[in-house]
Nucleic acid binder design. Structure first.
Length: 1047
RNA sequence: AGACCAGUAGCUCAGUUGGCAGAGCGCACGCCUGAUACGCGUGAGGCCGAGUGUUCGAUUCACUCCUGGUCGACCA
């Protein structure tokens, strides 16, 4: 039993294709589910994407998170079913068809295409890109059951949605309301706030001041500001704030009424004369002459008068607001409160009614100019300017949105505002601030859910009407059958088929209302509807509700996160999910949001094909905070992620390279306590890594887990393997070699499993070789193995600390060497080290051999903590004594600086307290109360940090020079061997000769040189050498001759 | 209206009971002796966005600004 050869270079895309094939051929995902059946459930809900566009890199981000935690929980012993879902209804789908047909007008669609054909095409197009989605999903290694996916267009799904609506209806929470809504007149549909947000653009609009003549007062006008001249024909009221001060001013021969605070902005430099001051309440009830009289209005209904309103402000304008109840939320509310009717000047198609003669048939926004011209001719236009502001446009049509009073169906979610907030407080949000912040804030400002859409392709609103404002909500097909007395098991629950279902009752014919519902209700209903609850799968639903884990991007706070939460609260008085990861958006390398129109999309397959899915997953999961938006480009991913993967791969490759040559018994029983210290160190560090990684994953902190893994792999590669490699190929002690193999094997065995949720392909590839290579009876996939468990018996914090100190000192001494310019190959006689405390000093003393070896130094000497060699700076240990001495700290700090450093250092080294005289009093400090820093020693190469001081004695004796030279010779001969094209194991005949120093070094180290370079014979002046070379170093020069040895 | 997030090295970002400011990349320099040169090491580089307050002490806590971003927002 042996390992397969490992390629020296990591090839992500190639490896992943191979693993994909293995998973596919062996149905591995299915097998993980079958294996775990019956175990405790960890439940996950997949937020349904719409498959009518190609998936982008941001979908890979979300899917990486959706995948990693179920994989992790599976390894932790849970059963984690993963049902995919597809969102199939709504305007985006309809729009695709409109583009195909080239028809965007709702009426034209009905007349020329027909609803049946239109919805048939919608159904067909919904899954247009499903192939791309499935391809991406599989390629990136997102394990989700796409064969058993739920579709929001299925009859079963719709029936469940109907049932939910009926449940809500029965609680009296669905109502028909007359409200001003954002409305896209071109497509004839109300827009959800979500859709509205897509279309804000900065535009320039008119900003005009208009005179409204006061009835019965000559030459006197209310001055009114508006930015929507097109609403003026529908004006019915003016509004003032009752507590604001208004003035009558005379200016240029006329009298104007406006808020005093706005005199300056409204009238500018005009000469004016304030005649009267009044309160807003004094103006209430005054009548004015209407500007346009094209529309019929009952003159006795209280119109054309001034009303008080709290919403009037003095921020801008004139403090007098023109109200057209048909086109403003506040206007409508004010009108309804005062019994004012709604008068539309514009039809639902967005064009002016014929009655408004001068602009009849004109698109509402185009009417601004002609209306202003008329006002000017009549002397009503006081001032006209333009101003820029943000205004919503239809995200599909690009036409301006109109705010329009109309009937629509609503869910009274605002009644549950408080309950939704309470339930939200029990949800674990990652990152946490979303709970109180964006999501909590949204819930607190909750308004009723505008449920209905006057469109074609969606879940039909299951409400039937007798035409007399009586309504019945239908909650199931069975109910419909009962009402109609006919079977409907073949009925397609879409328009137009459901529209044809009518029934007689109480002598009336009942027909379905024309609306479909907001497709966001569909997706929010998935907690229930994916199971066809309550018609089927009751027990399945109960086990999956509320679900343990969901994950989407941050835009879903107003979308899916909200709709799931709202429906669960209203229907079940429960949360819908317990843990939720909320991801920030991905932006391009310039910090811009990625969008098709900007052309800055990063295609996932470009990354998969060049670097691999694992690298991208590692980058997303382990390197980025989920909540901070990060910039991304192919280069960043390639660079950052592959650096980690390469390190791991090389370590794994090293292991396999030698394990293949040696016959190692990986089942050997070799107690860890009997292994060399460095092995125990590696395993203790591994233990710590398991714990850190597990803790982080349990907190849904993928980045924290990734950091723990990366840190371990770095230590394993650059400390453990580097320091131990000779044990694998040169060890003379078979037991020592076995210990090394077993230790490195275990490290790799554990760490690749820790990596499995992040980089499932790499982990699988390694597993097949590393684990299955020696234990064919092991589970067929790494994703079916158990998550590693830490073994407390292997913990050794003292050892971890000690090696940490060793690494620190080695680093410092290297820095010192670097600064002094003495290369590492030149041996030095001594290293002086000062440790900050006994614990560190002991750690260093116990590991001095390692330090000497790392640094190529002959001896290490510890400097006493009060040695005269160095000077000392004493600093207060602030965390310890700050609280105790408070205001005295600056004084103490100064006194310590001026004190006899060596004396204090000596006292603390002996563990004694010492007195510090201050002006007026004396404080007694102990060894723990101060930090001692040392500074450079004369004549040494020093480096200092964190209380450690290293000083290299850079004086070099002739002996050391010869030894250093010998090492140089070895190095150059090795290089020459490579140049000569010799194999690592080839034996050679070697000759080296050169300057006197070189000869001297050879005299002493020839045997060493020959042994290191596998030279069997020494011969200078060879007749026909295979390879020759000349080398120089400083003052020395030498020549090398190499031939292949024949013996 | 606003709400939330962010602002720390050239770049990307870490940094919680408040106590000497960190990593990776890039840059500079140095290192080839059987895992990695797609490698390893070292170094330079900081008014921790601005200000005020609390405190012996603030990158950290509070408040006010400024800048960028996200989600919102029909203010007439």
């Amino acid at each position: 039993m042996s390992f397969k050869e490992v390629s020296s270079r990591y090839d992500g895309p190639g490896l992943e294709q191979e693993v994909l094939g293995y998973w596919r051929d062996n149905r591995v995902f299915e097998a993980t589910l079958e294996q775990s059946a019956g175990r405790p459930l960890f439940t996950f809900n997949d937020g349904p994407p719409t498959a009518n566009g190609k998936p982008g890199i941001h979908h890979v981000l979300a899917r990486a998170f959706k995948d990693a935690f179920p994989r992790y929980k599976t390894m932790r012993g849970y059963h984690v079913p993963r049902k995919a879902g597809w969102d199939t209804h709504g305007l985006p789908v309809e729009h695709e068809i409109e583009k195909e047909l080239g028809i965007f007008d709702k009426k034209e669609i009905e007349a020329q295409v027909g609803i049946a054909e239109f919805t048939r095409r919608c159904r067909e197009s919904v899954m247009r890109y499903i192939g791309d989605w499935e391809k991406m999903t599989e390629r990136m290694g997102f394990w989700v059951d796409m064969h058993d996916a739920y579709f929001t267009l299925d009859n079963d799904y719709i029936e469940s949605v109907w049932n939910l609506l009926k449940t809500i209806w029965d609680k009296g929470l669905i109502y028909r309301g007359y409200k001003v809504v954002p409305y896209d007149p071109r497509i004839g549909a109300t827009l959800s706030s979500h859709e509205l947000a897509l279309g804000y653009r900065e535009v320039e609009d008119p900003s005009i001041y208009v005179r409204f003549r006061v009835t019965g007062e000559a030459n006197t006008s209310f001055l009114v500001w508006t930015t929507t001249p097109w609403t003026l024909p529908s004006n019915l009221m003016l509004a003032v704030h009752p507590e604001v001060d208004y003035v009558y001013v005379e200016s240029e021969g006329e009298t104007l009424i406006l808020a005093e605070a706005l005199l300056g902005t409204a009238l500018g430099d005009r000469a004016l004369d304030i005649r009267r001051r009044v309160q807003g309440s004094d103006l209430v009830g005054m009548r004015y002459e209407r500007l346009f009289d094209y529309l019929d209005v009952d003159p006795d209904s209280g119109v054309f008068k001034v009303y008080p309103a709290e919403f009037v402000s003095t921020e801008d304008g004139t403090g007098i607001v023109h109200c057209a109840p048909a086109y403003g939320v506040d206007d409508l509310a004010l009108g309804q409160a005062n019994g004012i009717p709604v008068v539309h000047g514009v039809g639902e198609d967005g064009h002016f009614l014929d009655a408004v003669e001068p602009v009849a048939g004109m698109f509402f926004k185009d009417a601004d100019k002609p209306l202003m011209r008329i006002l000017k001719e009549r002397g009503r236009l006081f001032r006209a300017e333009r101003y820029t502001h943000n205004y919503p446009f239809g995200w599909r049509t690009g036409d301006p949105i109109i705010y329009y009073a109309k009937n629509a169906w609503y869910i009274r979610t605002s009644q549950f505002r408080q309950r939704m907030v309470e339930l939200n407080n029990t949800i674990n949000w990652v990152p946490e601030h979303i709970r109180e912040g964006r999501f909590g804030n949204w819930l607190e400002n909750n308004i009723d859910w505008a449920l209905s859409r006057e469109r074609f392709w969606g879940t039909p609103l299951p409400v039937w009407s007798d035409g007399q404002d009586n309504y019945i909500c239908v909650g199931s097909i069975a109910e419909l059958e009962e009402l109609t007395g006919r079977k409907h098991d073949k009925l397609d629950l879409h328009r137009p088929a459901v529209d044809d279902v009518t029934f007689e009752r109480d002598g009336m014919t009942w027909t379905r209302v024309p609306e479909v519902i907001d497709c966001w209700f569909d997706s929010g209903a998935m907690s229930y509807a994916q199971w066809h609850y309550p018609f089927e799968n009751k027990e399945v639903f109960e086990k999956h509700f509320p679900v343990d884990y969901i994950c989407e991007a941050i835009d879903q706070t107003r979308g899916w996160f909200y709709t799931l939460h709202a429906i669960a609260t209203l229907v079940s008085d429960s949360v819908a999910y317990r843990n939720v990861i909320c991801l920030s958006h991905i932006v391009d390398k310039d910090g811009k949001k990625m969008s098709k129109s900007l052309g800055n999309i990063v295609n996932p397959h470009d990354v998969f094909d060049s670097v691999g899915a694992d690298a991208l997953r590692w980058y997303f999961l382990a390197r980025l905070s989920p909540d901070v938006q990060k910039r991304i480009s192919v280069d960043i991913v390639a660079d950052v992620a592959s650096s980690f993967i390469n390190t791991f791969w090389n370590t794994y490759g090293f292991f396999v390279l030698y394990a293949r040559l040696d016959d190692v018994d990986f089942g050997a029983d070799f107690p860890v306590s009997e292994r060399p210290e460095i092995d125990r160190w590696a395993l203790a560090l591994l233990n710590r890594t398991i714990r850190d990684c597990t803790t982080a994953m349990d907190r849904f902190d993928a980045k924290g887990a990734g950091e723990a893994i990366e840190s371990f792999v770095d230590q394993l590669s650059n400390w453990y393997v580097r320091r131990n490699r000779r044990r694998f190929w040169k060890s003379t002690d078979p037991r020592d070699k076995l210990a090394a193999y077993l230790t490195l094997y275990e490290c790799l065995d554990v760490v690749h499993r820790l990596m499995a949720p992040f980089v499932p392909f790499l982990a699988e590839n390694v597993y097949q070789n590393l684990v299955r290579g020696v234990r064919p009876d092991a589970p067929p996939s790494v994703h079916m193995t158990a998550w590693p468990a830490a073994d407390p018996a292997r913990d050794d914090d003292e050892l971890l600390y000690a090696i940490g100190v060793v690494q620190k000192v080695v680093g410092l001494a290297r820095a010192a060497r670097g600064q002094s310019g003495v290369r590492t190959r030149q041996p030095l006689s001594r290293l002086l080290v000062r440790a900050p405390d006994d614990r560190a000093a002991r750690a260093l003393d116990e590991h001095k051999d390692q330090i000497l070896e790392e640094l190529n130094v002959k001896a290490i000497e510890f400097i006493a903590r009060d040695a005269g060699l160095v000077s000392y700076r004493i600093k207060p240990n602030l965390p310890r004594i700050g609280k105790r001495y408070g205001k005295l700290i600056p004084v103490i700090r100064k006194a310590l600086e001026e004190s006899d450093g060596a004396a204090i250092a000596g006292a603390t080294a002996r563990g004694e307290t010492f007195d510090l005289p201050l002006a007026g009093e004396t404080v007694t400090l102990g060894p723990e109360d101060v930090l001692i820093e040392t500074s450079s020693a004369e004549g040494y190469a020093c480096a200092e940090e964190g209380g450690f001081l290293t000083a290299l004695d850079t004086s070099v004796t002739e002996d050391l020079v010869r030894e250093g030279l010998a090492r140089e010779l070895v190095r150059t001969v090795q290089e020459a061997r490579k140049q000569a094209g010799l194999e690592v194991s080839d034996r050679i005949v070697l000759g080296v000769s050169g300057s006197p120093c070189v000869e001297a070094a050879l005299g002493e180290y020839r045997e060493y040189l020959m042994a290191e370079t596998l030279a069997l014979e020494w011969r200078t002046g060879q007749a026909d050498p295979l390879y020759t070379d000349e080398r120089t170093l400083d003052e020395d020069r030498w020549s090398i001759e190499i031939s292949r040895s024949e013996t």
